[in-house]
Design a protein around this nucleic acid. Structure first.
Lengths: 257, 257
DNA sequence: CCGTGTGAAGCGTTTCACAGCA
DNA sequence: TGCTGTGAAACGCTTCACACGG
């Protein structure tokens, strides 16, 4: 029996849904499960075992079951999970039943690409406004949206009910942009600028730094190289000839905290 | 080359620059320390305390000291760390003393932006080749590099000594691209496609999924909303106005594993 | 009988508190 | 005296192993 929450999203007040406060590690994996579930649904599966879903999401099945159990999950022993039901439930928990409005600040090289990224729209978000501080960029139309000047942020934010701000400016401008976003009520920020942001408590910041990702890979390259320098007893040293067929999934680290 | 005692690491063969095998969490933070140190160096500091560096990198000082101690670090009690020395040391550990060649596959929306991203070049990497499967894109010049067909991967990889592959293709193409990269000897992959890659052991994959980052933020938005009781609120509701000037750093989660 | 759900053990990371050294 | 370096405690996450229910 598992009537726990109603994914109705009718958003009535009263007894506010006790959103379980999930372990951060679990939260970071739910979106991956969701993506895998959508794939399964598209290929006509209506139930899935923890084993199969775990494989599709790149984790082991014990971890997946523990994660889902935190949501008071809907599985059937001996059978598996109902795909459609689980999708609804995870989307509810992640707050994806409402399509949140995203403001993107900085339409330079990277920002331009983000503005055109279809994955945002297809996975629960709506890019509602684009901003830049550079007058020469203001007015430009990208993907059906006109770039506004950052000074118009307050006005637009109120109109569009911006829930999330994305910062894609150069590092020196990022803190100031963050301050402005916070000032207009934004409490979630995704930061692509290579710098640390200072924000009030209650505001969540996630950072994506592309160069850092490469540097982490570089470390492992460096280490692998220094190990193959020691011949003798290395297990599968140099990883030369691997089994031709489907190889096991190696080190696959995913972003998240 | 820096002479350093490696703590903990069992020195198999004595003379090899035995890289201490650092905790993954530490590895993921080193690049952030490095960035902060470069900023400090530029502003004329030649030493820095763990407290100051920690603040600049967005962590607490105990964590920073523990991280640096894993490298058998060079600090002076009562004084702090020598900025230039620490930069050299971290760059060495991360394997940034050689400028690694990166191959970027997929020059669509996102790939195009990555190809033009200055941060790669300025932080230790060289984009050495661009690839795409779409004939109509082959030949295009981006940032001084000509887009090659993916079938030329083997040839170019040998010429350029590609160390890292970046996948910026649509999801359905990603696994096949990963297989090709592995086939030509690439053992580090940064994957921007929203899918799980299967690779042989010994190959490192890091994944960056922009929609997932937003979905994680969405969860926290959802939860904050459910906690503040109800609805609403426009700007800055429930946000404690913080002490005038600099606000405390709130939840700042950084990408990494 | 099979696969979920879960207590409990195991492990890695963070935090604390202070010894040790310039 | 001030700040680094580090054992040890605390914490959270992962993995194991199996009871339980369809």
């Amino acid at each position: 029996m598992s009537q726990h929450r109603d994914p109705g999203a009718s958003g009535h007040t009263g007894a506010v849904p006790a959103l379980p406060d999930l372990p951060e590690a679990t939260v970071a994996r739910l979106p991956e499960y969701l993506r895998a579930l959508h794939n399964l649904a598209e290929t006509g599966n209506d139930t899935v075992s923890s084993e199969a879903l775990a494989t599709a999401a790149g984790v082991n099945s014990a971890k997946l079951r523990k994660d889902l159990s935190h949501l008071g999950s809907y599985g059937t022993r001996g059978v598996g999970y109902d795909v459609a039901l689980l999708i609804d439930h995870i989307e509810y928990v992640l707050g994806l039943t409402q399509r949140r409005a995203v403001a993107l600040v900085g339409v330079g090289n990277l920002g331009h690409a983000l503005a055109g990224y279809a994955g945002f729209a297809s996975r629960g978000f709506r890019i509602a406004a684009l901003f830049d501080a550079d007058e020469s960029r203001v007015g430009e139309e990208i993907n059906g949206l006109v770039v506004r000047h950052i000074d118009d942020l307050a006005t637009i934010a109120a109109q569009e009910a911006i829930a999330i701000g994305v910062i894609a400016t150069p590092a020196p401008a990022a803190q100031s942009v963050a301050d402005r976003l916070v000032a207009v009520g934004v409490t979630s920020i995704l930061n692509f600028a290579p710098c640390v942001l200072s924000v009030p408590v209650g505001v969540d910041v996630r950072k994506v730094d592309l160069a850092i990702e490469l540097q982490i890979l570089s470390f492992h390259e460096h280490r692998k190289a220094s190990l193959t320098g020691i011949p003798a007893s290395g297990p599968a040293a140099g990883l030369t000839a691997l089994p031709g067929g489907l190889a096991a999934t190696g080190t696959q680290e995913a972003v998240g905290t």
